[in-house]
């Protein structure tokens, strides 16, 4: 099977330059060939009843972190807000 590596990269929000394109295409081709050939199993996917998740009550907890603390790791902050490129024309 031929993989459209440019398309997959685009979906992944990764840009691949032309030098790397060949390498990634070959790698991906080999990996996809490897994972091919899984048997067809005529069963339904069953939910594992023993492993039901236990969710917390939907109650907001406040005061755990300060805004400042959470913004500390942001790449760019102005006036207490995250800075991003213009998204609406």
């Amino acid at each position: 099977m031929d993989i459209d590596i440019k398309y997959i990269a685009k979906l992944s929000r990764i840009s691949i330059n032309s030098n790397d394109e060949q390498k990634f295409r070959k790698n991906m081709q080999e990996i996809v060939d490897m994972v091919n050939g899984l048997p067809e199993i005529n069963e339904e996917l069953a939910l594992d009843k023993n492993n039901a998740m236990i969710l917390r009550d939907d109650i907001a907890e406040t005061g755990k972190f300060s805004r400042e603390e959470l913004m500390k790791n942001a790449p760019e902050v102005q006036a207490g807000c995250l800075v991003v490129p213009k998204t609406v024309e």
């Binding site: 992944s12 790698n27 991906m28 996809v32």
Partner: peptide
């Protein structure tokens, strides 16, 4: 990158 792309593909 390979794993993200494989995951995106499948």
């Amino acid at each position: 990158k390979r794993r993200i792309m494989l995951g995106t593909f499948v």
